[in-house]
Nucleic acid binder design. Structure first.
Length: 464
RNA sequence: GCCGGGGUCGCCUAGAGGCUAUGGCCGCGGACUGCAGAUCCGCUCACGUGAGUUCAAGUCUCACCCCCGGCUCCA
């Protein structure tokens, strides 16, 4: 059973073999921090979070690097609009990014290099390209010469000749060829700038990923990921300049996640339909959001709407309830037949090995949930099995998919709650239903759900 | 125009040649229950259209009809 993943470079599923056995070098294009994170960012970073987690589950030692683009046109524009310093804008959005991603249980990368902290690396990279004759200086700008790359377009499948013929390329007097792209941009008035051999200026967009991945992960990466929109021009250009520089293959497996649409429309500033993670977390639990995003195959588009989130909320609750039931059951005196989780684990792995097929993997968890619920209901399962089932849920649904995780609750007295529950028990014995229901309703309002069972009343924290 | 991805139950979502097509949500019936919740059991004639290949086709081929994305702002 081997892991296969869909490689954008070859347009097919390939068996995954890292350069070094059990060692994975992985780079994901992080956000340009000019604004808050939206649902599309969440989709991307959760997708690659799951990929990273699964690789780790398979025993790989993953080095995961994700960058922050903290200097670029959009940041500068934003700064000009608001008057706020661009670096402050970046800093604030980076803080928000961590807050949102932490809330969504996205594991932290091993490194978060920032463009502005790698200016010398980028300059050195550009100098090397100039030495090799793959780039040229033009009036303070430096451009990469696309014609030096024989197979330019091989990642994205763009047709070079056709693009040249088309009118979609902005004409720029300084460029020798319209497809050439900027490595270094000459400083303009009021923009952030750094000293360079070509005068003051700032780096182009693509160079940062090439320079930073080279520095932190080496010349060849095992996995490079990002949103589908980055395939062209960003990744095509990264690949062109990195391979020109090193003479080696830049990335073995290119992975790209699909987009999120909002009620069947593209999410965009002009449509004003951007849904921020911050806002979503006001309405929905991290588990719900995460489930929603993981319930589709990462390469397919997802359409966002409230109904879909409501569905996700109920679906994930089923799994969460089962985990609670198993936790509770293993405390009781259960005996009976054993329930092996081997089959489910194997099915889960089979699904994940098929290019991280999380919907199929979830289906396996639901099957396990149904089967263990039935056994608990029948009181026909031994404690060891329950323990095993719980571990299976925590590893597959928790460690790999990131759906189950502990959250901190405000300090409160469990003892007081127990007293309240026992008082309620007494009034229930006297059929004083209005009082007992009031207690239950009021507790529910503050996030504590009571459930009456033949074995007594149990309570749990709930999040919507 | 060029390139790419799709159309599977009421809705969402897997499956890519072969036993009764995955899982979820909703709906209906039942068990349990003071109610609620949770859980369990059962039910509900889903593969865009038309040809072809094959003993066998959601699954391969061709044609057609629709949908979506990219083509230097984008995760």
């Amino acid at each position: 059973m081997s892991l296969k993943l869909y490689n954008t470079l070859t347009n097919q599923k390939e068996e995954f073999n890292p350069i070094e056995k059990n060692k994975v070098r992985m780079y994901v294009c992080g956000p340009t921090v000019y604004d808050k994170c939206h649902i599309g960012h969440a989709r991307c970073y959760i997708a690659f979070d799951v990929i990273r987690r699964y690789l780790e589950y398979c025993g790989h030692d993953v080095t995961f690097v994700e960058n922050f683009t903290d200097v670029d046109d959009k940041l500068i524009r934003k700064s000009n609009e608001t008057g706020e310093d661009p670096f402050e804008i970046a800093e604030r959005n980076i803080g928000d990014y961590f807050r949102d991603m932490d809330a969504l249980n996205v594991k932290r990368a091993d490194m978060y290099p920032r463009a502005t902290q790698h200016i010398p690396d980028m300059i050195a990279f550009i100098e090397r390209l100039l030495e090799k004759g793959d780039a040229y200086v033009a009036d303070g700008d430096v451009y990469f010469s696309v014609e030096k790359v024989a197979d330019y377009g091989r990642l994205s499948g763009v047709n070079v000749e056709q693009m040249k013929a088309g009118a979609r390329i902005a004409v720029d007097e300084k460029k020798r060829d319209p497809l050439d792209f900027a490595l270094w941009k000459k400083a303009k008035e009021g923009e952030p700038k750094w000293e360079s051999p070509w005068g003051e200026g700032r780096p182009g967009w693509h160079i940062e990923c090439s320079a930073m991945s080279l520095k932190h992960l080496g010349e060849t990466l095992d996995i490079h990921g990002g949103g589908q929109d980055l395939i062209f021009p960003h990744h095509e250009n990264e690949m062109a300049q990195s391979e020109a520089c090193s003479g080696k293959q830049f990335v073995r497996y290119w992975l790209h996640n699909g987009f999120v649409t909002i009620r069947e429309e593209k999410m965009s500033k002009s449509l004003g339909n951007i849904v921020s993670v911050e806002d979503l977390l006001q309405e929905y639990s991290p588990e719900t959001l995460r489930y929603f995003l993981v319930a589709s195959y990462y390469r397919k588009p997802i359409d966002f709407d409230e109904d879909a989130l409501e569905e996700a909320k109920k679906a994930v609750a089923r799994l969460l309830n089962t985990v609670d039931l198993v936790k509770e059951a293993r405390q009781g005196d259960f005996t009976g037949e054993s329930l092996s989780t081997d089959h489910y684990r194997q099915q889960f792995q089979e699904a994940m090995n098929d290019d991280f097929n999380t919907p199929a993997a979830l289906a396996v968890l639901f099957e396990l949930a149904r089967d263990v619920n039935r056994r608990i209901e029948e009181k026909n399962v031994d404690k060891e099995s329950l323990e095993n089932v719980l571990n299976t849920f925590m590893e597959l649904g928790g460690d790999v998919l990131g759906l189950f995780f502990e959250v901190k609750h405000e300090e409160f007295s469990e003892e007081l709650l127990e007293i309240l529950i026992s008082v309620r028990e007494q009034v229930r014995k006297k059929n004083l239903w209005d009082i007992s229901d009031t207690i239950r309703d009021r507790l529910r309002e503050i996030g504590i759900a009571l459930e009456d069972t033949p074995e007594g009343t149990r309570w749990k924290f709930v999040r919507d």
